[in-house]
């Protein structure tokens, strides 16, 4: 049900007047809340120039925020690449012809989806810096405690997100028409070859929006590195806040940076989804499947329309 068009009738003059009243009241309540927050902030001196002018100085950006952003993106980028690789590998194993391999990878995936990312990060970090065997290994590789926090962030992100991506890929393969696999088998490919060269590539394309959305999850979760002292954007923000005594302002700026990055990635995912839907509506494709897709398309259309409300 595409909510907006059917939840209410096209409003008549009375309803329009009532909706206008609700709109005005809602705006007033929101503005009231905003004013309360602003008054509270003003009373606590949050609008003093000294709290905000640091953001006009290059030092703030080159010494705190940009290096923090770079370390955040480094961890996220490495984690994205590794999660994709391991996730696809896990999906192959979970669809293997050998039952024990399927079970083992199934247990792995379910286990790491159930454990919080932060727990995995703390475990990896503490093992690397405290466990005698691991400490010796780290020394022999020439790695320091600073490397340990980076490794811990990446390991935590990869274990969880590879498991999630494995399930995304598996869902993608599951939603392909059965004829794809049968056609592959009938031209003499082995079932492993069918998976590798026919099923998984198609699943990756159709699941691209979900995979891109997962990048948002990884970027957000990289902020957990703050807790294990990885010098990412939040840690730098904290330092900036105590250097200039403008904690609140610093965190608001950091939040804006995170929101902009993640919003851009979500928009990219939406764009890819829309493009794929337009492509699929072309002359190719047939039968029941297109009908399903049409419905899915209509549902999504409803979802994008709803921002505008019932203006008709």
């Amino acid at each position: 049900m595409s909510a907006q068009q059917v939840l209410f009738d096209i409003p008549g003059p009375k309803a329009r007047a009532r909706h206008l009243l609700y709109g005005v009241l809602g705006t007033l309540v929101l503005l009231g809340l905003l004013v309360l927050v602003l008054i509270r902030m003003a009373n606590r001196g949050q609008f003093e120039a000294a709290k905000w002018t640091p953001f006009l100085e290059s030092n703030t950006w080159t010494f705190y925020l940009l290096p923090g952003l770079v370390t955040t993106l480094q961890a996220a980028a490495v984690a994205v690449v590794l999660s994709m690789v391991f996730g696809i590998g896990l999906a192959m194993l979970r669809m293997s012809d050998l039952a024990p391999v399927r079970w083992a990878s199934g247990v792995f995936v379910e286990f790491f989806r159930a454990v919080p990312v932060l727990i995995m990060m703390i475990f990896t970090w503490q093992m690397l810096v405290k466990n005698p065997t691991m400490v010796r290994l780290m020394d022999s590789l020439g790695l320091t405690g600073a490397n340990a926090t980076f490794i811990a962030v990446v390991v935590g992100l990869v274990l969880y997100n590879a498991s999630v991506i494995c399930e995304i890929v598996r869902n993608g393969v599951g939603s392909l028409p059965g004829g794809q696999r049968e056609a592959g088998l009938s031209i003499g490919l082995s079932s492993a070859q069918v998976r590798r060269s026919i099923l998984v590539p198609q699943a990756l394309t159709s699941m691209l929006p979900a995979l891109v959305s997962q990048i948002v999850v990884i970027t957000k979760d990289s902020a957990l590195g703050y807790i294990i002292t990885y010098p990412e954007l939040l840690s730098r923000t904290r330092q900036l806040g105590s250097a200039n005594a403008n904690t609140l302002a610093a965190y608001l700026v950091a939040a804006v940076i995170f929101i902009l990055i993640n919003y851009a990635i979500s928009k990219l995912a939406e764009w890819i989804e829309g493009r794929q839907r337009r492509k699929r509506r072309g002359p190719t494709g047939g039968g029941a499947q297109t009908e399903d897709e049409e419905q899915a398309g209509q549902r999504a259309d409803g979802a994008t329309l709803e921002a505008g409300g019932a203006q008709r």
Partner: peptide
């Protein structure tokens, strides 16, 4: 809210 890291929200609740 969906695009802000939870860590940031919780730390902000405390420090901010």
């Amino acid at each position: 809210l969906r695009n802000t890291p939870l860590t940031l929200i919780i730390v902000f609740a405390n420090l901010g």
